[in-house]
């Protein structure tokens, strides 16, 4: 298993993601600069949290048009895994690799807190290790996490098992309490909570550990 973490100029969870991947998924993690036009040979592309281009215009909008994105789209089309966390999720919706959009939080304020999640689908490469533990706790930290899609799209996503994580208590106004989704092919995941911040009992929760273990398991 090899992974690439994409670094935009305003990414700020890239180091955290690299540490969590190295400790719990694979020792082979590359940093890939957003201006690069090709990816190293990897199984997983990880788009970390942060404020890719300052989140000016719309969160993730500028990043979704950066040079590396066409290589990521090719990787996804070939069936390669892509995970977008927080700003990474926003980038993936802006790049149309995932349906829907992430709007400003309903409370209009940035929200940073631990949230309880229900793992709705453990049949994905990102969530298989949650099997048998349907509830977990992972922190969120975002201003634009209010997931929106029209009812038709939401109904289809629900029906196809594309809702992977759901909030127990909605922190941002997300449609149907959605915290994380997967595409219809099952290889591109986006979620607002930060599993990479929940892998060490010393710094808080460990609810993110199964996320990284799932990925390790996906290729073992």
């Amino acid at each position: 298993m090899k992974a690439a973490v994409i670094v935009f100029p305003g990414s700020n969870c890239d180091r955290d993601a690299i540490c969590a991947l190295r400790d719990h998924t694979t020792p082979d993690v590359y940093r890939v600069w957003h201006r690069d036009t090709s990816l190293p040979k990897v199984d997983l592309v990880f788009i970390p949290g942060g404020f890719s281009y300052g989140d000016y215009l719309r969160s993730g909008a500028v990043a979704a048009r950066s040079p590396i994105m066409s290589a990521i789209k090719d990787h996804a089309e070939r069936g390669g895994l892509v995970a977008g966390i927080c700003n990474g999720f926003q980038v993936l919706t802006e790049a149309r690799l995932l349906p829907g959009a992430l709007m400003r939080n309903a409370g209009l304020k940035f929200v940073c807190k631990s949230v309880d999640l229900v793992v709705e689908n453990t049949q994905t490469p990102f969530s298989s290790a949650y099997e048998g533990q349907p509830a977990t706790t992972i922190p969120v930290a975002h201003h634009d996490g209010n997931f929106f899609a029209d009812d038709q799209v939401l109904d289809r996503m629900e029906g196809e098992g594309q809702v992977v994580f759901r909030y127990v208590q909605n922190p941002n106004g997300s449609a149907r309490n959605i915290a994380g989704i997967i595409n219809d092919k099952g290889n591109v995941l986006g979620m607002m909570p930060h599993p990479e911040r929940a892998v060490d009992p010393l710094t808080g929760e460990t609810g993110g550990l199964p996320f990284f273990e799932s990925l390790a398991g996906a290729f073992s």
Binding site: C13, K109, F110, V111, A141, D200, L202, T203
Partner: peptide, 27 residues
Amino acid sequence: IWEQYDRHVMADTIKASGGAADAAIVR
């Protein structure tokens, strides 16, 4: 107030506001 601040980015925060310690603790 402190729920509007990202207290965990960099993944080294052991105790922050609301963390029930007399000081913040960062690894």
